[in-house]
Computed example of a mutant assay.
Amino acid sequence: MRSKRVYGLDVIRSIAISLVVISHCTFLFYTETNNPIILFTRTLGAVGVDLFFVLSGYLIGGLLLKNIESGKTSFSDLITFWKRRWLRTLPNYFLVLVLNVVLLLILGDALPKSLWLYIPFLQNFINPHPDFFTEAWSLSIEEYAYLLLPFLLYLSFFMFKKQHKKLFLKVTLIMIVALFAFKISYYFNTHVTSYKDWSSGFRKVVLYRMDAIYFGFLLVYIMNTYATFFKQNRKICISIACTVFGGTHLLIYHYSLLPQTHLGFYVFFYLPIVVLSCALLFPYCIQLKQHKFFGKVFYFLSTRSYAIYLVNYSLILLSIQRNFKIEQLAFFEKGLLLLLFLVLTLSMSQMIYAFFERPILFYRDKHVGD
Rank of each mutant, 00 (worst) to 15 (best):
M1R: 15
K4H: 13
L9S: 07
D10N: 10
I12D: 02
S14V: 01
A16F: 04
V20P: 00
F27E: 00
L28C: 02
L28K: 14
T31R: 14
T31L: 04
N35C: 06
L39N: 03
R42A: 08
L44D: 03
L44G: 03
G48I: 13
G48C: 11
D50S: 10
G61D: 10
N67W: 11
G71M: 12
S74C: 14
T80G: 06
T80N: 03
W82I: 15
K83A: 06
W86L: 15
W86P: 08
T89V: 11
V96Q: 03
V101F: 07
L104I: 05
L105S: 11
L107F: 02
S114H: 03
L115D: 01
W116H: 08
W116V: 15
L117N: 04
L122W: 04
L122C: 07
Q123F: 14
N124M: 08
F125M: 10
P128R: 10
F132H: 04
T134P: 06
W137Y: 09
Y146A: 00
Y146Q: 01
L147N: 00
L149G: 05
L153M: 11
Y154G: 06
F158I: 06
F158Y: 04
L169N: 04
K170T: 04
V171W: 11
M175D: 05
F180C: 12
F180M: 13
A181N: 14
K183R: 15
S185T: 09
F188I: 01
T190Y: 09
H191E: 10
V192M: 05
Y195D: 05
D197C: 11
W198L: 11
R203K: 07
K204L: 05
V206N: 09
D211C: 02
A212C: 09
Y221P: 13
I222T: 05
N224S: 12
N224E: 13
F230A: 05
K231Y: 12
K231L: 08
R234A: 13
C237H: 07
I238S: 14
A241S: 15
T243R: 01
G247T: 02
L251P: 05
Y255W: 07
Y255T: 03
L257V: 03
H262R: 10
L271N: 13
A279K: 11
L281C: 14
L281H: 02
I286T: 12
Q287S: 15
L288T: 01
K292W: 13
F293E: 02
R304M: 11
A307M: 09
L310D: 02
L318I: 06
R322K: 15
N323G: 15
K325E: 09
I326Q: 14
Q328V: 08
Q328H: 11
L329T: 07
K334E: 03
K334W: 12
G335F: 06
L336T: 10
L336G: 04
L340S: 06
L342T: 05
V343W: 09
M348P: 00
I352Y: 08
F356Y: 14
P359G: 02
R364T: 14
